[in-house]
Each structure stands twice: as structure tokens, then as C-alpha cells.
């Protein structure tokens, strides 16, 4: 009922772990599969190991989660070993993820990470938390998106998905630029820029002061982004952002998503959330007489 084909690859269900949650290790990603996800995306990886920002790097609230982890990761060489380990433990689809400061480095990383048994490669050009180091996210600029997409497409041996930012007011135009530069898919969206303040401490909660907001508060924003992108491009969309329930996931698919990314929901409902979401989807589909997801994909556009 939930089987999904994304860029010719079979997924047992459309729910995939979003990049950044539960890290990089093969064992951790496999544990997400054991908890019911149809596929996983690794936390974004850079050329060299990175420590990320000092803590506090995340905080959870009733309706949202906020983080500024600062892209900590063990570096591409170590990450490749972890991705190989994942495929020893599981045959579920694996989405790699990379980030870099220049198009050239993105190209280099794309070639390198394809040494690992990844099925797809996501390009993280939309992290809102490292602008002091890298400048504004590339995902705000059409020329930057075109350059990076082309650089990665040239070197990658697997299909690529470009991860966009909900802070870009023209996300549909950005998506179109990625498509025309060779992107095979769009991941929409990353977290949206935000902050929280500890009133008693009289300072921002996050050490980085600002962070990326995810969780239920992001959901309607992400949904509209997916809706807009679906109208603008022909390539498939990984709809991500605040999906916490089966109902949210079905709404994403109705807006046009093929796969649905789930991340911060792990904070709200535990790592078992993947199973909960797929069960809730099945229940609603049975009640509504929906036989498969193709039947409803993009249906709100009719």
C-alpha cells in the first residue's frame, strides 16, 4: 500500500529519515530502518571532520524544535566507512548528503562520497546556521544553485537531490534553476531561520544565537513550499519539514511529494515515530479507500 518508486528505486514506504537527525553512523541509520523508515539520509558530511558549534546546539519546545549544531561530522573519509557499514546491516535505500563552501569542493565531495554505496546524493546548500563561516546559504541565490548543481551533477554517479531553504521567498524559481542545471530531485525544505531567548538568563538559548526551526511549526510552511515546487518542476520532491503524523505525511504527498522526510518528529514521538507514521497513513488510506500513493500524489493541484 505504501510502496513507493523514487527515481527508479523501490522504497517499502515513502518515509525517510531527514538529514541531520540521529547522525552519521551505520548502526544508527540501521536502527532507524529497524524502527520502520523506508530509507535514510545521512547527516551532512564535509571534507574534514568538524566539531560544530558549542552547546546548547538544540532545544525542544511544545510546537517546534530549534538547532544550530554547526554541521559537526567525522569528515568524508570516516563517513564513507559508516555508509559502507550501513549497507552491510541493511539493504534499504541510502541517501548521502554533503555540504561545502564552494562549488569546486561540492564537486570534489560528490565524486568522493560516490565511493560509498549510496543510492542518491542530497546537496545541502540551505543550512541556516553557518553563515558566519560560509556566508548566506547558496539556496537563496539562483546563480549559486545553478553552479553547485552543475558541479555536483558532473561528478556524481548517483541521482542528486538539491535541498532548498524555506527562507528563499522564490523557492519555486530556485527549484526550477536546480532542475534545469541537472538536479534529479528536490528536497524541500531545510529548517527555517529563527531564535529563542532564555528570559531568565537574558540571552539567546542557542550558543550560535540563531538556529533552524523545525517540528510542527514548520509543517504548514514546508507544505506550501512543496506545493509551489510541484507546480514549477517535473522532477520528484522529497517533502520534508515538520512532518510528525501520518496525516502530515499524506498531506505532503497530496501537495506533490514522492518521498517524505521525517526528522524532528523523533524528538516529539521517539525513534518509533517512523512506524507510527506509516501505521497512521495506512489507517487513513483504508478509511478513505486509497489503494496506493500514486492515486493521491499532487491531487490538490487538480
Amino acid at each position: 500500500m505504501l510502496e513507493t518508486i523514487f527515481l527508479n528505486k523501490q522504497f517499502s514506504n515513502p518515509i525517510v529519515l531527514a538529514s541531520g537527525i540521529l547522525g552519521v553512523t551505520g548502526a544508527s541509520l540501521n536502527n532507524v530502518i529497524k524502527n520502520g523508515a523506508g530509507g535514510v539520509t545521512v547527516k551532512s558530511v564535509s571534507k574534514e571532520p568538524r566539531l560544530g558549534h558549542p552547546n546548547p546546539t538544540m532545544a525542544g519546545y511544545e510546537h517546534f524544535f530549534i538547532n544550530a549544531v554547526g554541521l559537526s561530522n567525522p569528515g568524508i573519509e570516516n563517513a564513507i566507512l559508516e555508509l559502507k557499514k550501513f549497507k552491510e546491516l541493511s539493504n534499504a535505500p541510502l541517501i548521502g548528503s554533503i555540504f561545502a563552501g564552494t562549488p569546486e569542493e561540492f564537486g570534489w565531495l560528490a565524486e568522493k562520497i560516490c565511493e560509498a554505496p549510496i543510492d542518491f546524493l542530497e546537496i545541502d546548500i540551505s543550512c541556516p546556521n553557518v553563515s558566519r563561516e560560509f556566508g548566506d546559504p547558496f539556496a537563496y541565490s539562483v546563480p549559486a544553485v545553478e553552479k553547485i548543481t552543475k558541479a555536483v551533477k558532473e561528478k556524481s554517479t548517483v541521482p542528486i537531490s538539491v535541498k532548498l531553504s524555506p527562507n528563499a521567498w522564490n523557492i519555486d524559481i530556485i527549484a526550477k534553476a536546480a532542475e534545469s542545471s541537472g538536479a534529479d530531485a528536490i528536497t524541500a525544505v531545510n529548517t527555517i531561520s529563527g531564535m529563542t531567548i532564555d528570559v531568565r538568563a537574558r540571552r539567546p538559548v542557542l550558543h550560535n544565537k540563531q538556529g533552524g526551526v523545525s517540528g510542527p511549526a514548520l509543517f504548514p510552511i514546508a507544505l506550501k513550499c512543496v506545493y509551489d515546487i510541484y507546480r514549477a518542476v517535473k522532477i520528484p520532491i522529497i517533502g520534508t519539514g515538520g512532518v510528525t503524523t501520518g496525516e502530515n505525511a499524506l498531506a505532503m504527498i497530496m501537495a506533490g511529494a514522492t518521498l517524505v522526510g521525517v526528522g524532528s518528529a523523533v524528538y516529539f514521538r521517539g525513534v518509533e515515530v517512523f512506524k507510527h507514521i506509516t501505521e497512521e497513513m495506512t489507517k487513513i488510506m483504508e478509511e478513505e479507500g486509497i489503494k496506493n500513493l500514486n492515486e493521491i500524489r499532487g491531487c490538490v493541484h487538480l
Binding site: L22, G23, K43, T57, V69, Y267
Partner: peptide, 10 residues
């Protein structure tokens, strides 16, 4: 909180 995956074990 079991989110970041930093302390997962093999």
C-alpha cells in the same frame, strides 16, 4: 534527548 545521534553505539 536522543536526537543528535552523537552517543549511538555499535
Amino acid at each position: 534527548m536522543g536526537i543528535c545521534g552523537q552517543c549511538v553505539i555499535d
